[in-house]
Write a protein that binds this DNA or RNA. Structure first.
Length: 607
RNA sequence: CGGGGCGUAGCUCAGCUUGGCUAGAGCGCCAGCUUUGGGAGCUGGAAGUCGCAGGUUCGAAUCCUGUCGCCCCGACCA
């Protein structure tokens, strides 16, 4: 392609409404243009890069044994009603009515395709002998993001590879999951992307295992905790704190001063109380009243007090799992009034009338500031063991929480988000916090959709079972955004050769100079014939402008033909990620480019 | 959905507080001359319903009301 014939609107100045590097640079390099919030046009260079990433995804999915199909983006909303996801997606699902022969047809634009594919499979699979298999597609998805942001990192329309595995057994699911996991590692490596697979929360609905593939980047929206020593990494929802159960003291030292009640009118938050009483949040205990719904109680909500150190964040998934509850929500005002005898904001463990569970860190606090279970008051100098005790295992079991252990024991649990500095759950390292961009997700779905959409098979004993599913997504656009976000310098993007819009840019410094231009044209032709992906910068611009543009777009290899070099019989080869250029004799340039490009490509493919 | 910011030429912005001459600059664009290895110089030129609607006024980019759009922080995000 000749630069003059393509459409590459580079910008010299920073666009005013872009802040993160990927957004800024993709606009400036002429890769994308915004149509509206959350929707971008891919211009020639951006689209080429996107298609290269897509091709790598496709190759590796095929290699992993997945089979490509293509499903409609428009879907009957009835499918989402059957799975209940019309509610769980809520406003994110884009749906609308159309008229057909006077009838109203209710449509949705696919935010993902579990419903469509499970419906399809339910009609055509009936025996274990047809299983297992994995299907995938690469297609535009639509989600009405409440707040699109960061350029193409978070948009309402995006290109996604979504794969679905169908298995007759958990063993088959595990195999399909591992095949996808391995394929993802190859995909991101081949794309030249630095990535970390992290353990992820599989959410309240189904599934028991899930990994997210994260690109560590300061602008990532996800927070992950990792310990580089042991290789442990998990998203903040999932990360285990590495704390052990702490012994609950039975009493306090004899000379410890008794607890004291202080007036704290209108101070209901940790922040307010710490300010008023001049204490630090980590000297306080947060008492959160939850309502747990447990099937054994016939769905009747059971209040429970959860105690967390003041500077920590409660993790509802961990609490729910500890209690073995179906669902969990913060208690309403009425319940709090009933349990604490006080309005919201003054709950504490002393004298509370519901079961109490505590985080591992709580007994480590010698004394603490807590709510007084009375309006406008807090207690200071409160000691566990003397002033209050957590519930015993037996007491918790009695209200039907599924907790193992000796009935008389009082124990502690991991109930909070892990934080940087916490000990790693593996090895002796500590956890550090990094931000990440989620580029992929593998997920053992289980039978959630096969049950609601009646996708079943019969086994060799003619017993009917729901098909066991897995789902596996990759945000193709985010591969590009992740690359630009992590591979750029002050001058522009630094593409890995595998997804660069062009592998080589041929730059004749003066298109008016016939010998220079003739050689450039010859290189262009010969490189094209050799299968090299080459762009000829045939614009009649000054050298400086061409160099700036080449650096901005970030072509991996630049081949410069200048009048002076030509007099010495040399041209110049420069890799975008190397500081120095290499001079090569005119006659050797094509061979050198072919060899070096092939080497770079091979290095990325070999992984 | 809460909080903040911004809409003036293709891009980046000034002008608005205190209403008043023909609405400006730099970059880009067009023509010409010079220049030719890191976004050149000179000369000339084209280009804006000042986001939109309404109001106040003799007069509105400027003041008021409404509305639309975009960006950022937060909430939300299988």
């Amino acid at each position: 392609m000749r630069w003059s014939q393509s459409f590459i609107p580079t910008l010299k100045e920073e666009p005013s409404d872009a802040e993160v590097p990927s957004h800024r640079l993709m606009l400036r390099a002429g890769l994308i243009r915004q149509l509206m919030a959350g929707a971008y046009t891919y211009l020639p260079l951006g689209y080429r890069a996107l298609r290269k990433a897509e091709a790598i995804v496709r190759e590796e999915m095929d290699r992993a044994g997945a089979v490509e199909i293509h499903m409609p983006a428009i879907q009957p909303i009835e499918l989402f009603e059957r799975t209940g996801r019309i509610h769980s997606f809520g406003n994110v699902l884009i749906h609308f009515d159309v008229a057909r022969r006077g009838q109203k047809v209710r449509l949705a634009l696919g935010p993902t395709h579990e419903e469509v594919i499970t419906d399809l499979i339910s009609r055509h699979v009936s025996s274990y002998r047809q299983l297992p298999f994995t299907l995938y597609q690469i297609q535009t998805k639509f989600r009405n993001e409440e707040r699109p942001r960061f350029g193409i990192l978070r948009t309402s329309e995006f290109l996604m590879k979504d794969a679905y595995s169908f298995s007759a057994s958990v063993e088959q699911l595990d195999q399909a999951y591992q095949a996808m996991y391995d394929a993802y590692c190859r995909i991101f490596s081949r794309c030249g992307l630095e990535y970390v697979p992290v353990e992820a929360e599989s959410g309240p609905i189904g599934g028991d295992a899930s990994h997210e593939f994260m690109v560590p980047a300061p602008n990532g929206e996800d927070r992950i905790l990792r310990d580089t020593k042991s290789g442990y990494a998990a998203n903040i929802e999932r990360a285990v704190t590495g704390r052990r159960p702490s012994p609950v003291p039975a009493e306090a030292p004899a000379d410890a001063p008794p607890m004291k009640s202080l007036d704290t009118p209108g101070t209901t938050s940790i922040e307010q109380v710490s300010k008023l009483l001049k204490c630090k949040p980590h000297q306080m205990i947060k008492t959160l009243i939850y309502l747990a719904i447990n099937e054994f109680r016939g769905g009747r909500p059971q209040p429970v007090a959860v105690l967390i150190r003041g500077d920590h964040e409660a993790n509802e998934n961990k609490i729910r799992r500890v209690l073995g509850a179906e669902s969990l929500e913060l208690a309403d005002e009425e319940t709090i009034q009933k349990v604490t005898g006080a309005p919201v904001g003054f709950a504490g463990p002393v004298g509370i009338r519901c079961p109490v569970i505590v985080d591992h860190d709580i007994p480590l606090m010698e004394k603490a500031v807590v709510g007084a279970n009375a309006a406008d008051a807090h207690l200071v100098g409160v000691r566990i063991g003397r002033d209050w005790l957590p519930s015993t295992v037996g007491e918790l079991q009695a209200v039907s929480f599924k907790i193992e252990g000796n009935a008389d024991d009082r124990t502690t649990f991991d109930l909070r988000n892990a934080a940087p500095g916490d000990p790693s759950p593996k090895g002796d390292g500590t956890l550090e916090l990094v931000h990440g961009i989620e580029v992929g997700h593998v997920f053992k779905l289980g039978a959630k959709y096969s049950v609601s959409l009646a996708a079943t098979f019969v086994d060799e004993k003619e017993q009917s079972h729901p098909i066991i599913m897995g789902c596996y997504g990759i945000g193709v656009n985010r591969i590009l955004a992740g690359l630009v976000e992590t591979r750029h310098d002050a001058d522009g993007i630094i593409w890995p050769i595998s997804v660069a819009p062009y592998e080589v840019v041929v730059v004749p410094l003066n298109v008016q100079d016939p010998p220079v231009m003739e050689l450039a044209e010859r290189y262009y032709r010969e490189l094209q014939d050799a299968g090299v992906d080459v762009l000829l910068d045939d614009r009649d611009l000054r050298a400086g402008a061409k160099f700036k543009d080449a650096d901005l777009v970030g072509f991996p290899l630049r081949l410069v033909i200048g009048g002076k070099g030509l007099q010495d019989g040399v041209v110049e080869l420069k890799w975008r990620d190397q500081p120095e250029a290499e001079k090569v004799p005119v006659a050797d340039a094509v061979a050198a480019v072919r060899r070096q490009v092939a080497e770079r490509q091979a290095a990325l493919k070999a992984v």
